[in-house]
Design a protein around this nucleic acid. Structure first.
Lengths: 227, 227
DNA sequence: CACCGAACATGATCTATGTCAAGGAGTTCC
DNA sequence: GGAACTCCTTGACATAGATCATGTTCGGTG
């Protein structure tokens, strides 16, 4: 099964296993492809599975009590989704939607349980992944409570995986602006104003809707670390 | 070693091991006692250990860039501290201080690594603990970005382990008010005002500095879930 | 290629909460 | 049991950012 094999071997939490072990793990796994815009997971869904991302990007959001959608995170290669349902037995109450065409490894919970018992390394790597996520949420939390919106935006832009185009650092926003606003704990209006301000002061340049070039990295870093 | 034994057997992540296994784990573990006010962990400390709480209470805080102390969480029985340093190799950059006299099991990292390999169940329970923490931080984050301070306070009070005194639900604040303010992403002044308002509207009653009786649970829940 | 709708920008206004300042109350420690 | 220090409360004020409303741009679609 070359496809399953590929799926397992590409994902960080299964690296460190021998090829033979990977093949055995592959028997438990189902490779799944979802198209952009499709819903992967919806709240209260009784059948719950563990997803391990392999390519593409998903967004995880939470319908708050007041009806607002709160973006919790975006997940990319190597990230894990749905571990809480497996670990604690609670039903998932997040909404997961594909931002791009995505591929992932899917495990049923019963299988996963046995898997972790047989391959402690996998558990260790999962722990590492969760620990990273925890650190990243705590960073975001600290950022939201202790800095203003401009600083959060700057930090967000600096965190984004960037590329160099024509010698200038460029980032491609993975989310629509109103979604970024939600993620950063603000509103689209404020985000728009602050981006405009950063642009006016020559720190960044906006091209089209999702394309940002960073003209002055140091300046942006200064904004991200306020006094 | 009955003391070590006790330490290990009292902690959730080691339950599920047989008595014999617990005894073997106990060899790795060092029981530690810290007095109220003592520092358990400080940022950048090069020797890092894993703590598993057993009794008492610690507070974990983070010195933000602007010098403000941000309270990240309080940890109580069964909680784990310092796993990130172990899992990722990064130095800890949180400050951990004992709020009460506390007892905990301490592992050195090298030992822990072997432990997780030998007892996959321990890893699984650690995963569960981390997953709970993640969920709780994500809840806090959502609360901070999508509700006002009154709602956060109400939710906080409802979350606190409460007792019944004279037939009335009573909570004992585990932190000083200025620390609670930090945890909830606000200031002592605002917290004070909101508590006063809740008190004025007859929902709660304040006694002394840390003692709160809840007169109207439904009312408090209504405040916690705003429209 | 022109249309259409969603996403975005901008302006005017309002309000919750932060900030600064000063006085009061609760603990703690001798 | 009282002094002394924190912690907490209250007040007056300033302001970042939310909200509401309207106009504009982009990018996909027929």
């Amino acid at each position: 099964m070359p496809v399953d094999d590929l799926c397992v071997s590409r994902v960080p939490i299964f690296q460190g296993l021998t090829r033979e072990e990977q093949l055995r793990v592959a028997e438990f796994v189902r490779p799944v492809h979802v198209a952009k815009g499709e819903t992967v997971y919806s709240p209260g869904q009784s059948v719950s599975r563990l997803l391990v991302m392999h390519s593409g990007q998903l967004k995880v959001s939470h319908a708050a009590a007041n009806g607002q959608e709160q973006i919790l995170r975006t997940v990319t290669d190597g990230d894990v989704v749905g571990e809480r349902a497996f670990l604690t037995g609670h039903l998932p109450n997040d909404l997961v939607v594909a931002l791009e065409d995505s591929r992932m490894c899917v495990f049923d919970h019963t299988d996963l349980s046995a898997l972790l018992r047989d391959y402690p390394d996998v558990g260790l790597r999962m722990l590492r992944t969760l620990s990273d996520r925890l650190a990243s949420v705590e960073r975001l939390l600290a950022a939201i409570t202790s800095s203003d919106v401009s600083a959060r935006i700057a930090a967000y832009l600096l965190d984004l995986p960037g590329s160099i185009r024509d010698g200038v650092p460029t980032v491609w926003l993975p989310l629509a602006k109103y979604e970024i606003a939600s993620y950063l704990g603000t509103t689209p209006e404020t985000l728009s104003r602050r981006l405009a301000a950063l642009s006016a002061s020559g720190v960044i340049e906006l091209h089209g809707r999702r394309d940002v070039t960073i003209l002055d990295i140091d300046g942006l870093e200064r904004v991200a670390t306020p006094r």
